[in-house]
Design a binder for these strands. Structure first.
Lengths: 206, 206
DNA sequence: TAGATTGTTAATCGATTAACAATC
DNA sequence: TAGATTGTTAATCGATTAACAATC
């Protein structure tokens, strides 16, 4: 229990968490089963039980899982029982979308700073955040011991920004730049490239 | 060769394609090896050779792969040797970001229509596209036989939009809504939820 | 030729699933 | 009690890697 959990298991937990929240908040359910959860997510019930069993015993035979309790446990496991402040780099269209996204709330994250290198954008207010000069990036990350960053800059700028973030102490990066980033071990990167996602699906088209 | 390729292999091909394009266009290289490509992507050279071997023999012993030839082959395999016209649903901040994104160009896709249900947004021009009423969604998809859609609407609206898209003939959906979508078999869905991605990485934080 | 690198095989490693005793 | 569902084991399935003959 909880020693060396496969990445792929960790990857599914946030999806379980999201569906459990929906079950609880939208549908007012109190308990659920691995079978019900699996059906809703297109995952086998055995896999859900196996995944959870890496961390402990959260259910009851005969009745299943108490949803709110399981939500609490998953939040604890994923280190979401707190709010991670996030640095956003890039105040273009995508930066705007991220700064205005309300989905971060209550899910463990809050964008607290926005940076850009464009003098025309610096000083602009973005959903009550003031766009700061990229020259202040390191100082902010270091002073507030920020661990999480989102990169919404061009492919050309992304590696340099990454190097600066990492040097300043960032250890989790969500990147929207269409490029593979080089980071030292211990730093995690997650990518979002809409074109890569579309290209994967294109294989199955006609 | 090419009968029943694992999803996970297909998933890596667009990443190979992206890096090969970079190698060719940014660095002017003519050939590369599975070792070089793997090093740049953090993937073993054996895996790259194995992945490619599902589709044919593209390299030469001693010299490796001719980059432009391999790019052509991958584009062919992934059905990218054409331009897929894409329907975008949702003209909020994220819709704006997607409509203005220049990264689709030359990678197989082009957003050709944008829909929203907000009267304030309908008629607005978005990077030379006019936002259309969502009531015209089905007619457009059917008339132009559109196969690919991007969903940038709220979690509440996403399932209804999905059902309408699927009924109209869409078979690949990239969804930014934080919800698991139910679709009939044969329809592919790819998700992008920044919070899920951040939550996965949070597990590894301190 | 000598060195480099492919495509492929077999071995290893890891993930998923089926089945069921335990028990609520 | 009878029915439902868990957590876990063992079997199955699938993916990755190491190694190497073939050959450019």
């Amino acid at each position: 229990m909880a020693d060396n959990i496969p990445d792929i298991v960790i990857g599914r937990l946030p999806v379980y968490l999201r569906e459990l929240t929906r079950l609880s908040e939208e549908e007012g359910k109190i308990t659920t089963s691995s079978h019900e959860l699996g059906q809703r997510l297109g995952i086998s019930s055995a896999q859900i039980r196996k995944d959870l069993s890496h961390f402990g015993e959260f259910g009851k035979q005969g009745t299943g899982y108490h949803i709110k309790y399981l939500i609490d446990q998953l939040q604890e496991i994923l280190h979401l029982a707190r709010e991670w402040k996030v640095v956003l780099v890039g105040a273009g269209y995508l930066g705007h979308a991220l700064a205005h996204y309300r989905g971060f709330q209550d899910r463990g994250f809050r964008i607290a700073w926005v940076f850009d290198n464009d003098p025309a954008k610096i000083g602009e207010t973005l959903n009550s955040l003031i766009v700061q000069s990229i020259t202040e990036l390191e100082e902010t990350v270091e002073k507030h011991e920020v661990k999480v960053a989102i990169i919404a800059v061009s492919a050309e700028a992304a590696q340099e920004i990454t190097d600066r973030l990492v040097a300043a102490g960032i250890s989790a990066i969500l990147s929207y730049a269409p490029i593979h980033l080089k980071v030292p071990s211990g730093v995690h990167v997650s990518y979002s490239d809409p074109v890569v996602q579309l290209q994967r699906m294109a294989y199955y088209l006609v």
